[in-house]
Design a protein around this nucleic acid. Structure first.
Lengths: 223, 223
DNA sequence: AAGCTGAAAGGGGTTTATCCTGTTTTTGTT
DNA sequence: AACAAAAACAGGATAAACCCCTTTCAGCTT
């Protein structure tokens, strides 16, 4: 059996008792783990983290006074992009979970999981790069699908307009003037006038800005 | 032990051998499964699926002639929104996977999984509503994070503009005229003129459409 | 207090965008 | 070929957007 490198951890949580309990737990479940330091919020973390001795994984809460988990993760992503983050929080709001995942955290655990799962999560993050439970995955996928209904509507809007109008809409979502668009489409500016008016009606908007916003909102144009 | 309801399945795949093999496999691994019908593509599916005898789960490939998996899923979502879809495809492109998940498929399997896992996937979809492997979850999360870097830039653009300019930008992303915006902000239209010119310079755009597109692209406004 | 600075406002003019009411061309059908 | 419908195009008018340059005024500096 090979000798393992210890995994360096850092804890960021404002509840001292919980944090201390976590420390002893971590050392109990697996002696591969080494606690580098602890912090009560993001500001303390900023002071304690060092460039030349970075933790492998930071276990972090979301609700913290001073500088909360979101701010802290954003700061870490900018200044210590290589440090992996495992959120340990009681928050189970879909919005928060998804927000954290978008920020790039490698795992998200509820505070009431078994110690064993904490160990598994940490090893999973080290070995595979992430640890997402079914619960988290479910939330994530659900949040993705929330807008999937509306995307069907977009298909219908697409059908309502002609190919030429779609081309025009693309170009209207730019800083070109209608005259320039007309030239690019080899059409008279007056024809462009007609396309615009037709789309105003079909998409129920009243200005070119409305047109552009509609197109973006319904992903008819790529940004 | 209670008597279980059979789970009604449908298969949509253009490779007959694969489809037939799948049929026998499915009946071998678990006799809870009942194959309602098979189809070689989306068009065949449209003909065979019935309102009063819907499958619980449809196993579907992506690459198919005539009407591919994406089109078929979109059609199903519109006409049979309750039918759960399990993709069984060799395609492992992140883009395709994410696209399918956004469309609301309940699971995504590679064609080279063990039969056992197929059974687990189906049962998981029936019991928990979904089945996503770590591989899929990883792809999904990765695609989410792709744009997370750029979101840090957005913060900087925000700093370059004053609070009043941010307010203006919000309102500029609407169908209001500058005069209407001025009234809403209790300012002279000329002041609005100034904000616009300042933002043109700061954001390096040349028209109100450019302004709106910039704001949307960098998520400075919510759609 | 004189001088400076930045936000707010104004004057006045050019270019685009928007709107309305037509006419000509094209296209598809019978 | 005759006809209907759709697409392309025009003239002309007004509102909105865009641009440059000046003025006012409150808050600050020195």
């Amino acid at each position: 059996m090979q000798v393992r490198q210890p995994i360096n951890l850092a804890l960021v949580d404002d509840h001292v008792l919980f944090r201390k309990g976590l420390v002893s737990l971590i050392q109990m479940v697996d002696d591969d783990f080494n606690i580098l330091f602890e912090a009560g919020n993001g500001i303390e973390l900023q002071k304690k983290i060092q460039k030349d001795n970075q933790p492998d994984i930071i276990l972090m809460d979301i609700n913290m006074p001073g500088m909360d988990g979101f701010e802290t993760v954003i700061w870490l992503k900018e200044h210590f992009p290589l440090v992996k983050i495992l959120i340990v929080s009681m928050i189970e709001k879909e919005e928060s979970i998804v927000k954290m995942l978008k920020l790039g955290v490698k795992g998200y655990l509820s505070k009431d999981v078994e110690p064993k799962e904490l160990g598994e999560a940490i090893h999973s993050i080290i070995n595979r790069g992430f640890y997402y439970t079914d619960f988290i995955t479910g939330k994530l996928v659900h949040s993705l699908q929330d807008n999937s209904q509306e995307k069907l509507i977009k298909t219908k809007a697409l059908n309502a307009m002609s190919d030429r109008e779609k081309d025009f809409l693309q170009l209207a979502c730019s800083e070109m003037t209608y005259n320039e668009i007309a030239a690019k489409m080899f059409l008279s500016p007056k024809t462009i006038d007609g396309y615009r008016n037709a789309l105003f009606e079909k998409l129920n908007v009243k200005s070119r800005v409305g047109l552009a916003l509609y197109a973006v909102k319904h992903e008819l144009v790529k940004l």
